[in-house]
Design a protein around this nucleic acid. Structure first.
Lengths: 332, 332
DNA sequence: CTGGCTGGTCTAATCGTTTCGTCATCGCGA
DNA sequence: TCGCGATGACGAAACGATTAGACCAGCCAG
């Protein structure tokens, strides 16, 4: 920039004003500066600018699993929305590990991100402290967390799961199993509650034997949980998987048990994805509005950046049940 | 930091030295500084540090499609490797659009990333200029590009495709179709070449009617290309999809045509993914070593950061054919 | 005793911007 | 002609770290 100033024969202040339009500059000098910029091949140094301005134009995005299609769709949508408004995104992935999340959180803070969108892996004092300090706006996505009363964009997990279970009940299923997720995660708990609500509503007992927890989010754990259900003396005629990873495990388990879906056991699961609609059986899924989640979260965050005031807002979006071939009327 | 200095009763230089270990500091002062850091709640300002040091400890990662499992696996591996070495990753997604890539490239440069790992969406003068300028190290992944003779980590696409086609030939297939990708992408061209090599090697003609281009990377285009092949008077008995997106389109097309895989048409495709092994038919795929790609690319880049000298190195990794149920012996 | 080295500390310059306050110039109305 | 508000340009002080270089005390070898 000093080179540009020299080449154009003007002061640094004028160059800055000409480039950013932050102060009036005569047409002539503006032209001279532009010519000089081109001549010297000047490019702004965003780091210096950030230091001076106290903001980086970057938002931190923390998610728990980058190989999960649900998250990649959300990421895509957030990046799109952010870039459109001139913000960059710094993505970190905690791998469902609170310790890793803590580490990456520190990194994002050090780097002075202007705001944070986070699907948290679980409670950490650091996130708590960060939120309490109010230093930067935070928007929670996918999961709420106790003690952090921040802006959030989530979906109505209980209602969505209830819909799915009702659908299975409507097909005549009575013994319906569920593979639940990590208990610490609000999302998992809500989905479990939705399941219970639907069962109770139908006058059915909530049988502990039909609840199979997959303690971590992984297809292995989903497989284990599914095997447990399928090995039951009177095995469920339908199984609901609380997320797409456990759905993989479930489908593999069904195959390994020598059963077929949907003839032997109907299946529905959370999270839609491209492949769900392609293979046999085409999966009945609960599709989350990933696009909307990303857009809303980004919009919310950027609004907070402008105006910190006001109580936290929680947006609850609705998910949509997509009935396909993996769930059928219970025969016999 | 000035607060820390005050609290500890030492100079700024000493605080910096104590924190970074960049100069010897007596045990006593070190302790005082540490206490002061804790007391004040000091956190480094990475932006200021970057400005002074001239490096940000961040590498730019540009990919073309974040919803593609191949890329998410690579991203995951790169982030892991980078974080392990104290680097952050700034991820940008071009959506296969060179114009977007150009934009994001500028962004990464402005932000002073120390290096760049890129799966390019196609030729842009900017990337070319950046590479020629030699200002920051660049590692190409997945795709080479004319005119940029940089470090690269790719796989042996021709060999991998040849293996897959040989496998189909070995099953007795003679009319084998292929859905090819964007011609501008080296990866697509190499896979096509591998197909040709295998056909010629088997003494078969390369029939233009069996080559169905999907001009963009999308399942829609894959679907269109597949429909064209399946509508042929003497349709192919096996089809190879050049990437996982076109594989989705292909599977959907088969279903929509009222055909079944593998009975009516055998299928193999590039890129393995979790779901490929779960549904019916379990897909025969060419699995890329995504983990290794990420690690190698990161290692290569960080080595270059230390030492710019030496000619560009191109690492070519091997992909592995995973034979499953979607490809079977041709009956009749 | 002296000169040089080393370990420990400090002061001040620097990185590349933005921006505040100052100042000259000009046009215009009184 | 004079005074005044705009307008346009500039100088210099930040932003928050790193680090070169100055300085000093203590120690050891010559």
């Amino acid at each position: 920039m000093v080179d540009v100033a020299r080449a154009a024969g003007v002061s640094l202040a004028t160059v800055s004003a000409a480039i950013n339009g932050s102060a009036p500059v005569s047409a002539e000098l503006k032209a001279r500066v532009q010519a000089a910029v081109a001549e010297v091949g000047y490019q702004v140094n965003a780091v210096a600018r950030s230091l001076k301005k106290g903001s980086t134009g970057t938002i931190g995005l923390m998610i728990t699993d980058i190989t999960n299609p649900f998250f990649t769709n959300v990421i895509h949508s957030i990046q799109d929305a952010a870039h459109r408004r001139g913000y960059s995104v710094m993505l970190c992935c905690s791998d469902e590990d609170p310790a890793k999340e803590r580490l990456h959180l520190q990194l994002l803070i050090d780097r002075m991100v202007d705001g944070l969108i986070i699907a948290t892996a679980g409670h950490t004092d650091e996130l708590h402290a960060l939120w309490r300090s109010g230093r930067i706006p935070i928007v929670l996505i996918d999961r709420l967390i106790d003690g952090i009363d921040a802006d959030a964009v989530i979906i109505d997990n209980a209602a969505a799961t209830r819909d799915a279970i009702r659908h299975l009940l409507g097909l005549g299923h009575r013994r319906i199993g569920i593979i639940t997720g990590r208990r610490e995660i609000s999302t998992s708990r809500e989905r479990y509650e939705g399941y219970c609500q639907a069962m109770v509503e139908a006058g059915l007992p909530v049988d502990d034997a039909l609840i199979a927890p997959a303690v971590r989010f992984s297809s292995q754990d989903g497989y284990g949980a599914a095997m447990k259900l399928l090995a039951l003396p009177d095995r469920p005629t339908a199984i609901f998987a609380s997320n797409n990873l456990s759905a993989i495990g479930l489908m593999r388990a069904i195959k390994d048990m020598g059963l077929t879906c949907p003839d032997d056991v109907s299946v529905a699961c959370f999270d839609d994805f491209d492949w769900a609609n392609v293979f046999h059986p085409r999966l009945t899924t609960v599709a989350q509005p990933t696009q909307a989640i990303g857009v809303q979260a980004t919009t919310m965050l950027l609004e907070r950046l402008k105006d910190t005031a006001g109580p936290p807002r929680v947006i609850r979006l609705k998910a949509e049940l997509r009935v396909r071939d993996s769930s059928i009327v219970r025969t016999l």
